[in-house]
Computed example of a mutant assay.
Amino acid sequence: MPVLIGIAILSGCAAGLVDAADGLKVSATPAPQSAHPATLPAAGDDGPRFHDHAPHEWGTRKPWHYAVHGIDVSRYQGEIDWLQVRADSVDFAFIKATEGGDRLDETFKQNWAQAKAAGVPRGAYHFYYFCRSAKEQAQWFIRHVPRDTTALPPVLDMEWNPKSPTCKLRPAPEMVRKEMRVFLDTLEKHYGKRPIIYTAIDFFEHNDLKQFKNHSFWLRSVAGHPQEKYGDHPWLFWQYTGTGSLAGITGDADINAFAGTRAEWQAWLQQQNE
């Protein structure tokens, strides 16, 4: 692993600030960012770590070159056996909590508790809705996702939703970024952890999200390595398939890779718990 990634991931370990309102430690430095390595952190060329119902024909930059893999889940995965998930070598999970300002994923509380009990590091994510204010949505997320010092940073899921039956609004990029900052800043102040931004290439480009230089990114790229789709933009997590298959989950699963080595993953996890 080139030095660039090691420095980027561990750079967030610097001292933080204490917010006077609630006594929480808030990062005084940018969240850890990962950059694309010139040479991938080879974890072996034995082939895919998990089965895929519709595998992509990867080039030289393969997901299984990365050592640390995890999943993201919502009600669409149904009942999950988290002990089986953990036994299948899943290293982390992001769990859908909320959407908009009035929707709670009905499986969140169960998944949140059972993932922790099974020993799977987990974080919660919010699916953004363009017909409610960022302030309302942040308050809704905070209402339902408890503070937990062992949790991964919260995630803001930003993508267009053309299938929404109630909101077809597509705000101007300047307004999108303004509202995102309100949501992100509110969650950071409350949880003491800088949120991660999840997005797809069309939304990323249209709204010029590269301006969020102080936030880590979780990028969707199921038909090529992120470097092929997002250029040299830094990323921390890579969602590389939506058709994965693993123990404990019935049907398709989203699978993701962490950008660093296993040692860097452990260091990053430790940083989140400080």
Score class of each variant (00 low, 15 high):
110 Q>M: 12
110 Q>C: 04
110 Q>Y: 12
111 N>L: 06
111 N>F: 06
111 N>C: 08
111 N>G: 10
112 W>P: 03
112 W>Q: 05
113 A>D: 14
113 A>S: 14
114 Q>I: 01
114 Q>V: 02
114 Q>W: 10
114 Q>D: 15
115 A>H: 09
115 A>E: 05
115 A>F: 04
116 K>R: 15
116 K>F: 04
116 K>P: 04
117 A>N: 09
117 A>E: 14
118 A>W: 06
119 G>Y: 05
119 G>Q: 07
119 G>F: 02
119 G>P: 01
120 V>I: 15
120 V>Q: 07
121 P>H: 05
121 P>E: 03
121 P>L: 01
122 R>W: 04
122 R>F: 02
122 R>C: 15
122 R>Q: 13
123 G>S: 05
123 G>C: 07
123 G>Q: 07
124 A>T: 13
124 A>Q: 11
124 A>K: 11
125 Y>E: 12
125 Y>H: 12
125 Y>S: 10
126 H>A: 11
126 H>E: 09
127 F>E: 08
127 F>T: 12
127 F>R: 12
127 F>H: 13
128 Y>D: 05
128 Y>R: 15
128 Y>H: 14
128 Y>G: 04
128 Y>F: 14
128 Y>M: 14
129 Y>D: 10
129 Y>S: 10
130 F>P: 03
130 F>M: 13
130 F>H: 09
131 C>L: 08
132 R>M: 06
132 R>G: 04
132 R>Y: 10
133 S>Q: 01
133 S>D: 03
133 S>Y: 01
133 S>N: 01
134 A>I: 00
134 A>Y: 00
134 A>S: 11
134 A>G: 07
134 A>N: 02
134 A>H: 00
134 A>P: 01
135 K>W: 05
135 K>R: 14
135 K>M: 05
136 E>L: 04
136 E>R: 09
136 E>G: 00
137 Q>W: 00
137 Q>A: 00
137 Q>K: 01
138 A>E: 00
138 A>V: 01
139 Q>N: 10
139 Q>D: 14
139 Q>T: 04
139 Q>K: 10
140 W>Y: 15
140 W>Q: 03
140 W>D: 03
140 W>A: 03
141 F>W: 08
141 F>P: 01
141 F>A: 02
141 F>N: 03
142 I>F: 08
142 I>D: 05
142 I>G: 03
143 R>E: 14
143 R>Y: 04
143 R>T: 06
143 R>W: 05
144 H>S: 09
144 H>T: 07
144 H>V: 11
145 V>Y: 07
145 V>C: 09
145 V>A: 07
145 V>P: 09
145 V>I: 03
146 P>L: 12
147 R>M: 12
147 R>T: 13
147 R>G: 09
147 R>V: 15
147 R>E: 10
147 R>F: 14
148 D>P: 03
149 T>R: 15
149 T>S: 15
149 T>F: 07
149 T>E: 14
149 T>M: 08
149 T>Q: 13
150 T>G: 06
150 T>D: 14
150 T>F: 08
150 T>M: 13
151 A>V: 08
151 A>D: 11
151 A>T: 08
151 A>N: 06
151 A>F: 04
